[in-house]
Computed example of a mutant assay.
Amino acid sequence: MKKINVALIFGGKSGEHEVSLASASSIYQFIDKQKYNVFTIGITKEGNWLYYEGDVENIKNGDWEKLSNRNVNINLIPTANKNIGIEFEDNRFEKIDVLFPVLHGPFGEDGSIQGLFEISNIPYVGCGVLSSSVGMDKLICKKVFEQEGLPQVKYTYTTKWDFNKNKDKVLDEIEQKISYPIFIKPANLGSSVGISKAKNREELENGINEALKYDKRVILEEGINAREVEVSVLGNEEVCASVAGEIIPSKEFYDYEAKYLNESSKLIIPAKIDDEMMNKIKNMAIKAFKSIDASGLSRVDFFIEKDTNKIYVNEINTMPGFTNISMYPKLWEATGISYTHLIDKLINLAIKRHNDKCSK
């Protein structure tokens, strides 16, 4: 059987560049090489696309950029003179059958690059343009979840323009709407980049200033005494959810360092909850997935309030991490789908969605 040509795309211009490198190196290591030819394409922090062929460790450690072959042409735009694919120096041409973008954050998970893939008319892993952009924008996503009746913690938001115009007024309004502790998040970013926790007004102001480095809008959420639980979701029209897993952060909350740099954070899989709560959370994860018209994969994060056992949807991640300590593949492994089989399923879902769209 002829192998399928997969272009694994990693890096990107967002603050989650290094996370993407780790995810891509892991996928490359575990993808079924008997079934797929893998072509690795990196995007630098400046936005340059480069073809890399070599030791996968160089992707993870960042050396791929200086070792890339700059004489290879990557063509994803259909033109009269060029086919879509990879053109090598010896005139060899490799058609791309499916794209596997392992890009986290802005320019990779927000619908931007998905729009390019739609223009290229090539199957690609993950959510489409709309669901990617809604899932990436935490503020818009919260409004969708609210419309769907999914419970969330109390929240409000502010903008860079409003905060710079009248800082004290904005801080007063936040304190009137929600209580400390307050979590501060950029509206458009993932992997807990730019997130902080404020216990007083001074920390709130500093946290907003930090979050505004990453986005012009900031979400403020009321902190609750809660367990953090996550569920992996897989599918297109037919959707299934993994068992839930619980996170015990190594720090006060599950920030960027606790997720990717400090391996002392504990992942309890499956979460220690009863069957009724497990099923309720799984059903809520599927509802959240469908509410933004997601496809392929997503990870849905929840809070379980310790005093009341009330469940709140926190957020959805349409391109969750694939590192060796990432929850998304670990949850599926605990549910019965191995890492390699999971990659295979995602590629098949991408091809099926594309074929379904083309047959309409």
Rank of each mutant, 00 (worst) to 15 (best):
G15T: 12
S20R: 08
F30T: 13
I31P: 11
K35F: 00
I43P: 08
I43A: 10
T44Y: 01
E46C: 10
N48V: 15
L67I: 06
P78S: 05
I84V: 13
E87R: 04
K95D: 01
K95M: 02
L103T: 03
F107W: 13
G108A: 13
E109V: 07
I113D: 03
L130W: 06
S131W: 00
G135L: 07
G135C: 10
L139V: 03
Q147R: 15
G149M: 10
L150Y: 00
T158H: 08
K169Y: 09
E175L: 02
I184A: 00
A187Y: 03
N188V: 03
L189T: 04
G194V: 00
I195R: 05
S196Y: 03
G207S: 06
D215R: 08
V218P: 11
L220S: 07
E222R: 08
N225K: 14
A226S: 14
E230I: 02
E237P: 03
V239M: 05
A241I: 07
P249E: 01
K251M: 09
A258G: 09
N262M: 01
N262K: 10
K266R: 13
K266T: 15
P270I: 04
D274L: 01
E276H: 04
M277V: 06
G296V: 04
D307L: 14
I311Q: 02
Y312F: 15
I316T: 07
N324P: 04
P329H: 06
S338M: 01
T340M: 08
I343C: 05
D344S: 07
D344R: 07
L346V: 09
N348M: 14
H354A: 11
S359D: 10
